[in-house]
């Protein structure tokens, strides 16, 4: 375990020194930029749009970060022969692969933590401002109207569901990182890995539809049936992790759904990482 942690910590140090945190700067700029247009909307709309833009940006940035950061790890080590020096030590290959993955997951945790902190601070500040504004606007209105306005602002403000949705964004990015790691074990170039992962990303969001058609066993030809089966079985269901819209709309994210989706994410990570390890064991350096 110490060896895995040493590799993970080294990978994390490597990634953090690659200026990947520019991603967070982009997020901060989008967050600040979006607030310029907020004043045109109602209290509820303003907070919903802020959540929508922030969580949507977080989803795209963490997915990109997971793919781009993972794509270069193993190929770069092999190209630079650093992998020779590491694997010539008594380091089992599975520990090397796991260490690399854990390093990326560490990066995702840190990135999401910083982005969430920025987002929460922004959301909380806007919520407090809007509550003050509502109290000012409804100062002379009947008490029920004021309470109604405050309730509307609070309902659209900072809630635990948002943290859960961010947790699922982390799971989605982790699944993408594990899948990318698998692709790098047989890819010959970084560009191949990235292009493959772009396909995985898009097909992964359509996997649910393909799976449903496949399970319905409608009268499609055998080729269509086989194609749908392959999509359903090979690709991860990335849409399952997209609970942002639900949270933005103010619908509660039940603990059951959250747990179930988290377990699904863990399952995908376990499967893709195991496959990556198997592939890497067969790889000659």
């Amino acid at each position: 375990m110490r060896r895995t942690l040493a590799i993970a910590s080294n990978t994390l140090t490597d990634l953090t020194r690659q200026r990947v945190f520019y991603f967070i700067l982009i997020f901060a700029l989008i967050l600040i930029g979006s607030s310029v247009f907020m004043s045109r909307f109602s209290f509820q709309q303003e907070l919903q749009i802020l959540k929508d833009i922030s969580l949507g940006t977080m989803s795209i940035l963490t997915s990109l970060l997971a793919i781009l950061a993972t794509a270069r790890l193993i190929p770069q080590d092999i190209e630079d022969r650093t992998a020779y020096t590491i694997l010539a030590k008594p380091v089992p290959r599975y520990q090397y692969v796991l260490g690399k993955l854990l390093g990326v997951l560490g990066l995702l945790v840190i990135s999401l933590f910083i982005m969430s902190a920025l987002f929460f601070a922004m959301l909380y500040t806007r919520e407090q401002t809007l509550l003050s504004e509502a109290m000012r606007q409804y100062a002379t209105a009947p008490r029920e109207q004021l309470e109604d306005a405050l309730r509307t602002v609070r309902a659209a403000g900072l809630k635990i569901d948002i943290a859960q949705a961010i947790g699922l964004l982390f799971m989605k990015a982790s699944v993408l990182a594990a899948t990318t790691l698998l692709v790098t074990t047989f890819a010959t170039t970084n560009i191949f890995t990235v292009i493959t992962m772009v396909f995985v990303y898009f097909i992964g969001h359509l996997q649910e539809i393909a799976r449903e058609y496949w399970l319905q066993q409608t009268g499609n030809g055998w080729f269509t049936h086989l194609f749908l089966a392959l999509v359903a079985l090979i690709f991860p269901d990335l849409q399952a992790f997209n609970r942002v819209d639900q949270v933005v709309a103010g619908h509660a994210l039940s603990l059951g759904i959250f747990t179930q989706t988290t377990l699904l994410g863990c399952f995908y990570i376990a499967v893709y990482t195991t496959l990556a390890v198997v592939m890497f064991y067969g790889k000659e350096l």
């Binding site: 040493a6 590799i7 080294n10 140090t13 490597d14 022969r81 020779y84 020096t85 030590k89």
Partner: peptide
Amino acid sequence: FLPENPYFYKFLTGTETLRFFGKLC
């Protein structure tokens, strides 16, 4: 093992490099 034209992680210092490889052992 010392590979031909060794290339290590450039972002590490000499001490950090040896600590990393020491931990691997």
